[in-house]
Write a protein that binds this DNA or RNA. Sequence first.
DNA 1: TTGTAAGCGTTATCAT
DNA 2: ATGATAACGCTTACAA
Lengths: 340, 340
Amino acid sequence: MPNEAQKVGLRQVAKIAGVSTATVSRAMNTPEIVSAELRERIASVVERLGWVPHAAARALATRRSGVIGAVFPTLTHGDFARAIEGLQDELTHLGYTLLLACSNYDIDQEFRQVRKFVERGVDAILLVGELHHHELKGFLVQNERPSLNLFVYSPETHGTSVGPDNHKALYRLTRYLIDLGHRRFGVIAQDAAANDRAGARLQGIRDALAEHGLAVRPDHSTMGQWTIREGRELFRRIAGQEPRPTAVICGNAYLTVGALLESLSLGIGVPEEMSIVGYDDIEIMRELPTPITTVRVLSEMVGRRAAQCIVGRLEGREETTEFECGAEIIVRASSGPPPV
Amino acid sequence: MPNEAQKVGLRQVAKIAGVSTATVSRAMNTPEIVSAELRERIASVVERLGWVPHAAARALATRRSGVIGAVFPTLTHGDFARAIEGLQDELTHLGYTLLLACSNYDIDQEFRQVRKFVERGVDAILLVGELHHHELKGFLVQNERPSLNLFVYSPETHGTSVGPDNHKALYRLTRYLIDLGHRRFGVIAQDAAANDRAGARLQGIRDALAEHGLAVRPDHSTMGQWTIREGRELFRRIAGQEPRPTAVICGNAYLTVGALLESLSLGIGVPEEMSIVGYDDIEIMRELPTPITTVRVLSEMVGRRAAQCIVGRLEGREETTEFECGAEIIVRASSGPPPV
DNA sequence: TTGTAAGCGTTATCAT
DNA sequence: ATGATAACGCTTACAA
């Protein structure tokens, strides 16, 4: 009597079902090549014993874990949260699992998280933006982990990134305002220091303006992070300038909401006296007393496409996924022609 | 010449460093029991080869993965997002990794996610609330996975849950309004069908009222989910009743914001004509034209404590963590005495 | 303090 | 279609 209390495992299942371990393994992974009879017998034993296969053992044998690691700058911003939800859901359906980490907008921390992920045996890595630690790419190549950059896209990055074209989105939004007749622009940008997407958006604004020989005056240009309070303060600062811009473009949803709320407090008519437009569309933007014109980013879709794309690559499938996720301008009451 | 291109692994490191695999393993896991000389020699080889230990192999050998699985109803609500961020950060510091899934408020889906997690080899499971699939607990016990319920707490659940005491929080908030003189209450509750925490909060309101011989009139009682739009609609419905309540208690942050915005639209003075109070404190609540009185839940702390608590249990440490995360009433301009 | 070698629970390569 | 058995890469008694 060598083994009194066998713990449930592939072996035990095989023994009770009267087959080899290999057959049980096949019955689980490639049922179609196992005879119906054995398949059922095995299934019933598995059920009866409540056996749950051990993923680490499988990962060791197959050298694949079925886990995808994603590092986001933060998890609390609406756009990332939505993307994570889409990502998670889609990965689950594809038979993968999501390992999540947070870099706090710090590329060193991001790199550390990625290292941990590789140790954990993730099959692939998902990142936000294209600005990373300089050793990151080499590290991933050396460790043979495919990766994808989220929330960025430009024709040159095709195949390595999935998201909206930040530059194009703000270029268009700015064009829309120019076409309305605006010539003096204020900008409440998101700090671009550790955020290449914010930088691209800013550049989109500048390029659109430059085409018309326009530029943002320094005293109309401010930089914030992503709180409503900052949006208020920066808007107040801009609105206090003389001359005041006729349109203010904000870098993210919260800065925008802050700007709009401050315009209310200051009694500045929007859009009669000033237009305010934003980036990213969250519910509050359409529920405020003056609903806000903004760029709708399909964040959840970014997550879903990223999942499909990376899994497709892992499984060596032909890549048909679209990489660019369109960003649509939603026109609401906060924008209109400049005052005469 | 048996092995031409050895791939980097423990073996290879050991060979090059001129020590046994056991020593390398020790140098990685328990450096203090390895002589300084070898430790350094090994470290340099590890560095040079860029070796990254294989977590699956380790998990197989130690029968622990260092991974914690958490299933949340959704990832997009602010409170959960904050908790996840805290959880993730704290787990990282403790040397663990977070595996994340989403149940969409569906206990069957939750159960499926938990099964997947167990297959993935998580060491422990984190859940939200205490209402789960009836087989869930048995499953976790059978598979020897400790678990913790988040965002709930009552003395009876001590040791198995970490979060605020939902009942107590709303009991107190209601008492606060009663003490201000309110006697007619409206409620915009969050649907409690698949949400035991919402149920507990509702009960807290009822119990506080009952102590004063009060109750919510059916036409002052509504149920929503968690959008601003619903908050608006339900507030409008309640405010249209005759008599109208003098105070409205809302079940979550977005319903509250909706109620406040609708009061603005309807031109109802807050708090002169009606008081509006909410649950959970998000930035917009203190930035609206009328800042909102609400219950602040320390969501990030829920995440952190949960991490400490579950890791403590896994590592067999004496448990000193507090399980109840206080919920504080933040009084702002939206609440005051009832109209005379 | 260090080395030897037996697992850990699967999958995958051969045969049969 | 099924079975025997050698990996997979690391940890950990047990020995030295």
